[in-house]
Amino acid sequence: MFFFERAIAKQIKNGGGPYFRYIDDLFIVINWPVRHLLKQIERLNNFDENIKLKANIGSFTNFLHLYTENRDGTLFTAVYQKPSYEPYYLPSNSIPPLHMKKNIPFIMLLRTIRYCSTFQTYLSERENLRMASLLNKYPNKIIEQQFNNVLLKFNIDQPLTINNYNKYRQNVLDSPYKEPTGIDYDKVLFIHFTYCSSMEMFPLKFHTLWSKSFGESPINEITPVLRIRNVKNLQRRLTH
């Protein structure tokens, strides 16, 4: 992939176009004559049978989950769903802890705000997300709570409307990205346990017992972090 990508990146850079890569997906915008573009795509597709580029000539395209369109000089974006998309997320009644499941509607709505450039598309995608969450047995109370938490995270103290959407969306887009902090493995102790419904209160009880037992001990300088393992059920045995 390195040798393949290096040749393309050099061409695009010389042509003054943007070049993006996410894992093994490339997104390139270039202003070449149609015949030259198709010839270059054909040449590059012969480099390796496992790597294929697709030419998209027109005013719209999609990359990963983002739909992009040039509407008379105005950039329009929205969430793109692949043809194989199915509205199946981690079910609310599944084994993993609640905080993991609550994060799904939160992240999905945040993506919706970032991707949807108009209030109408945001509204439509938000309701699609709500319906998908309900189909996966998420209570409407949790859905609304997580939707509100997205707004609170960016200090938005009122509902999004057609009048304020562009302003608040820009605030979300301009918010600084926090780099993941490194882990000091000398001061962090990872503890894995198999999660099931009867273990729901285990993390709270563990931290209470840890503080009680090691509160005055030097070992208390070490931070315990609990992680879960999946239950070895029949489904996992059949799929792994």
Rank of each mutant, 00 (worst) to 15 (best):
L129C: 11
N166C: 01
N149P: 01
L123G: 14
P176H: 13
L151Q: 09
Q170A: 10
I162F: 02
F154M: 05
I143G: 03
I143F: 00
Y165K: 07
R126V: 11
L152S: 13
V172D: 05
E144M: 08
S175C: 13
Q146C: 08
K137A: 04
M131I: 00
K167Y: 14
Q120A: 10
F119G: 00
Y122T: 06
Y122V: 05
R130Y: 08
T118M: 01
K153W: 06
T161R: 04
Q146M: 08
N171H: 04
S133F: 11
A132E: 00
L152C: 10
T161A: 02
S117K: 06
F119M: 06
Q145E: 14
S133C: 15
V172G: 05
D174A: 01
E127D: 07
V150Y: 11
Q170R: 12
Y115V: 09
V172A: 06
T121I: 09
N163A: 15
N171F: 02
F119T: 00
N155K: 06
D157G: 07
R169H: 05
M131K: 02
T161F: 01
N128H: 14
G182P: 02
N155I: 11
Y122G: 04
N149W: 09
N164E: 01
D157W: 05
L129Y: 07
N155C: 08
N166W: 07
Q120N: 09
K153H: 14
L123E: 15
C116R: 04
P176I: 15
K178H: 01
Q120K: 14
S117W: 11
I113S: 05
Q145P: 07
T112Y: 13
Y177D: 15
M131W: 02
D174P: 04
V172M: 09
R111D: 04
A132H: 00
E144K: 12
I142F: 05
K153R: 12
P159F: 01
T161W: 02
T118Y: 08
Q170H: 15
N128E: 07
M131P: 04
S124Q: 12
R114S: 11
P176Q: 15
N163T: 10
I156K: 09
K153T: 15
L110Q: 13
L135N: 09
K137C: 02
L151T: 15
T181M: 14
